[in-house]
Simulated scan of single mutants.
Amino acid sequence: MSIANEATVTGGTAPPAMVKVWDPFVRLFHWSLAGLFALAYVTGDEIEKVHIAAGYSIAALLAARIVWGVVGPRHARFGNFVRPPREVVADLRDLVTGRSQRRLGHTPAGAAMILTLIGMVGGTCATGYMMTTTAYWGAKWVEKLHEALANATVALIALHVAGVILVSFAHRENLAKAMLTGEKREAE
């Protein structure tokens, strides 16, 4: 007898059915990007070789994720979760007013954050690379832009984490755990 059947037989309620949502690549990408960005951020000018290696690794991860966003499974594809701005605004309004709609994949606001983070991290990688080229070697404006993009990304990460916590409470679902296991409650 399974635990779910045992709980039902003994008068309890069966745990909710779980469904795979996030494939292994999306989860590996997410946590690798988080770790590599943190490594790149803290090493900065202090340990240049580690900083540069982390930056190139991040750029490779971003390129792979963009490809995966086109050819990957359903919930990984940008076409599945990217929504128009009016839906993002409506999703944020609904979250603030307590009427947030649970989705199996990303929410419209979550999707907007993903695109924004990909753009910001991509810009940080591009300006980091530019600083290694002859054309932009020593260009202060590139260095300042690189630093500003990295700092803005840290602010976006804080907003992302706050959003994950808020939506986790609103939907009574641990989204960080779902990004570890790949599983979420079945659609209600």
Rank of each mutant, 00 (worst) to 15 (best):
A111V: 03
W68R: 07
E48S: 12
A63E: 05
A152D: 08
V88S: 09
G123S: 12
M113K: 02
V82E: 05
A148N: 11
T133C: 08
H51Y: 03
V164S: 01
F81N: 03
F78V: 12
A76T: 05
A162W: 02
A38N: 09
V21S: 04
V89N: 04
R27E: 01
M179N: 03
A53H: 05
I165A: 13
T153I: 06
I114K: 00
H106P: 03
Q101V: 15
A54E: 04
W31D: 01
A63R: 05
E147W: 10
L145C: 02
I165M: 09
V154E: 01
G12N: 13
R102Q: 12
V121D: 02
R93A: 14
E183T: 09
G72F: 02
V26G: 01
L61Y: 10
H75C: 04
R102H: 11
K140W: 03
A126F: 11
M179F: 06
T107E: 07
K49S: 13
K144P: 00
L180S: 08
I3M: 13
G163P: 09
K49G: 01
A155G: 15
A139Y: 12
G69S: 11
P15F: 09
H146L: 10
M113A: 15
M130V: 02
R65C: 06
H171D: 08
M113G: 12
V19D: 03
V70D: 08
A135S: 14
L61A: 09
P84A: 08
I157N: 00
T124L: 11
V71I: 15
A111Y: 05
S168N: 02
T8M: 12
F37H: 09
T10F: 14
R99L: 10
L33F: 07
M18W: 05
L104R: 12
F25T: 04
G163K: 09
G182L: 09
V42M: 10
L33P: 02
L156V: 15
G69T: 07
A158S: 07
L145F: 01
T116M: 13
Y41Q: 05
D91W: 00
E6R: 14
T181I: 05
V50P: 00
G55W: 05
N151F: 11
W68C: 09
G123R: 10
K144H: 10
E186R: 14
V121Y: 02
G128F: 00
G138Y: 10
M120H: 06
V82D: 06
G105P: 10
Y56S: 07
V142A: 11
V142C: 01
T124C: 10
A64E: 01
A60M: 12
L180D: 07
L95P: 00
F81V: 03
P16N: 01
V161K: 07
L149C: 07
T8L: 15
F81L: 03
A40V: 08
G128H: 03
A170R: 14
T153V: 10
P108M: 06
Y129Q: 02
S32G: 12
L61S: 09
A176P: 09
V96F: 13
